[in-house]
């Protein structure tokens, strides 16, 4: 059995070949956390716990985004969420989402209300 030395942790894998563009965390979470065929393992995670986790993380993501928009850093004082790593990971995720949003908004397949296509 090979024994690798622990490698530096990263918030996401550099290699994600299959869904190339949209590795949105919420999309991954909802698929990974409550999907997949069950073949009983020797250690089981309570599926109810997983469900709760998913909801918590989703709320966390949207709350941080909301707070950032409002210029509030409330989560820094929230003990459960105060991990520096958590903030960095979310910041990175948000940044990528923002980049993606900009990319989409500059593309032509994202009509806005102000600029509706002339099609009937």
């Amino acid at each position: 059995m090979s024994r690798n030395t622990p490698q530096p942790l990263e918030s996401h894998e550099p290699l994600e070949p299959y869904p190339p563009r949209t590795a949105n965390l919420a999309d991954i979470l909802e698929r990974v956390l409550d999907k997949g065929i069950v073949i009983a393992g020797d250690i089981k995670i309570d599926l109810l716990d997983i469900e709760l986790l998913t909801i918590r993380v989703r709320l966390f993501i949207s709350s941080v985004d909301t707070a950032r928009k409002a210029g509030i850093d409330w989560w820094e004082t929230e003990p459960a969420l105060s991990s520096r790593a958590a903030r960095d990971a979310l910041h990175e995720e948000n940044q990528r989402l923002r980049d993606r949003l900009n990319e989409l908004e500059s593309a032509d397949h994202s009509p806005t209300r102000a600029e509706e296509p002339e099609s009937a």
Binding site: H12, L29, V32, D88, A89
Partner: peptide, 25 residues
């Protein structure tokens, strides 16, 4: 250990992305 790790959003993300990375590969 696992349940504790999954309580931390950053650790949960890391774990989920590692899992997802292997499956997609």
């Amino acid at each position: 250990a696992l349940a504790d790790r999954l309580q931390d959003p950053a650790e949960l993300e890391r774990c989920v992305r590692a899992h997802h990375g292997v499956i997609t590969a």
